[in-house]
Each structure stands twice: as structure tokens, then as C-alpha cells.
Design a protein around this nucleic acid. Sequence first.
DNA 1: GAGACGTGGCA
DNA 2: TTGCCAAGTCT
Length: 373
Amino acid sequence: MIPNSCQSQWPDPQTAQQLAEALLAYYDRQGRSLPWRGEGDLYRIWVSEIMLQQTGVKTVIPYYGRFLERFPSVSALASADLADVLHLWQGLGYYRRARNLHAAALLIRHEQGGQLPQRLEQWQALPGIGPSTAAAILAIGCNQPHAILDGNVKRVLSRYIALREPVESGAGKKILWQMARRLTPSQRPGDYAQAIMDLGATLCTRTKPDCPRCPWQSGCRACQLGEQAQFPVKKGRKKAKPHQFQIATLIQDKEGRLLVCLRPETGLLAGLWEPPGQQLDPTTKPPSLDQVSKQLKAWGISGEKSEFAGVINHTFTHFHLTVYTYRVAYQGGCLTGYKAQEYGWLTEDEIQQLPRSTLHKKIMALGWESGPG
DNA sequence: GAGACGTGGCA
DNA sequence: TTGCCAAGTCT
């Protein structure tokens, strides 16, 4: 039988069962061994699923261990300061996930008496948990027969039926969700969810899929056509990332402490700490020391000396950033002309305790070397 | 539907 | 070097 994406009734129950059994046999034989596998604690599954959103297994593993050591239960997480949660998340990216995880722990303590939900709608009502994560948590954590549809599953299924529809389109997602639901077995749905993600992560990879080892090879349309690379179909090219430019100032007082500011609670790198900075006109060239002292004056700071410390280039999801960094010896004044939620003069050790992004760690690493004066 | 939201790895 | 992406969600 040749599957066809136009036949939305595919697969029939018998075909679905055969595919699930083949996949489970593959999983039993060569599924990956991962820290959250075989885990009975729903909280731990939850944490793993949040960390794994848009993030590779290899990156997540060390964070997962450190996070659970520090916050071993939903109660421990709910009792924690958000800043400490963000500190364990620093470098992992998408910091909104950490804020949502913490917020959800508080909601669970307040509204469920600390008991984790057992129903899909309850999980999906929590911040940071959408349809796929909710399904994954209950499938893996409670062996409930919910279908997941993440990047791996989209790739595997779109290849299996040679789906011409872009996978991120409404029509494409509808077909894939339906297919994912039909394939999800009533027996061992949790293992099945992990098995299909393993398949996508290790055999049915974006480039160079290892079809000969695939338990679904015989029925895979893309493989039959020799067009594995054509799927999943994506929409048109994305726009080029814009390029932004900034100044960052590492202002050091006579005790060697650095002036650091708290970013707003919303938006990019929310709630993380950074040195004072300023957006630059994209057309300007690297600022002169004269421009830097003018900027400091505008903030209300007088600097004794300043010197160029280096350039940091960093790429975010949606733009490139170049940061011209300067070291400044603080002479006097207060940061009255600068918009910051909060700021302070802190030692290197104290700053280590604050949550910072990878970008701002790179910038601040330029500040503890031979300062001016 | 499209864009915001991080980072490191890889072709 | 540049682009794409890896267990998505929210606005």
C-alpha cells in the first residue's frame, strides 16, 4: 500500500499498529540512553521537555543534571527565587522557558496543592506548555496515549508520506497531527513518543538519513522516490537578519567593582544583568573615545579614563549584533540618565552570582583584565 | 500567519 | 562565512 497525503484517513488502524510495533522494536533494540529515560518522576520529565524545546540533547544534559540537583521537586522550584532559576538557565537560551517553568511551579503549588496535573488540558493551560509538550509530558511521564508533533516527528512523517505541503503551514500541520494521532498506539505510547523522536534524531536526520537502518524504510515514500532531502518542505526563504550595533561600557570604580544593570522583565534576555550600553546608528563607524565620554556624561557618569576593550560579535535568532566595548575608570556621578530597572556596583564574585546571557558574559570578560588607571 | 525568542554545532 | 537548525510557545 502506498501512503498518500491526500488520503487523510491514512493510516488505517492495522497499518498504524504494524508501524508502531516496528518502531517500538527498534527502540527496544537501539533506543538512546538519556538521563530522563526510565524516569518515574513527572516533574523531571516536565523539566526535560522544557529544556529540550528547540535545544539539542547534548546541550541539555549538563543543564538537566544541575537544575534537578538544585531544584529536585516542584516544591523546591516554587520556593526558589526567579533569579536563581535564571542563573541555572544561563547559556541555555530562550530564558522565557525558565521564567515560565518557575511561574508554572508557583501556579501548581497555589492551585493544585503542589500536585502535578494528570490531564492534557491542565498541562496545556500552564505557561510555556503547548500541545506538543503537554502531550510529551503525559505520554512519557504517565504512559498516556497522546500524540506529539515536534521537529523530529514532522520530519519523519513528512518523509514517510512525501508531504508536499509545507510542514509549518496550517494545512501541513493538520495532516501531520492527524497522522501522528493515528499512529500513536494504546500500548506503550510513552515509549512510542520517545522512539519516534529517537528515529528523527539519529536515523531520519535532516542531512544524510540512514535509511537502511530505519524500521519504516519499506513504506517510506520519500525513500522510495530517493527524495529524502526534499522533505520536510519548508516555506520560502527567510529574510536576512538585520545587523545592530551597540556600545557597552565596563565602568569600574576604585575598588574594582563594576556597574551592572538589570534588564527589563519582558523581551530579549529578560531579567538578566548587563553592563550599561547604548544602541548605535547602524550607519555609524566604531565610536571614538570622545563619543564614549559624551555618552557617559549623558548618563550622569564622569569617567577618568576610558579605553577600547574589544569588539564582540553575537548572533541572536533574529538579528546580528556587534558590540564595541570600552573600559572606563569611574570618577563620580550617578546613573540618573540611564533607563535601568535596577543597578549596582558589584565585585566579580558578586556578578558571578547574577544571571547573565552568553553575550554579556563575553562582554564582561573584557572588563576584569588590566583596567584603565 | 508571521515574528520574537538564545545558543552552539555543523555543512 | 553564512545559513539552518534542535524534543515549540506566545503574541
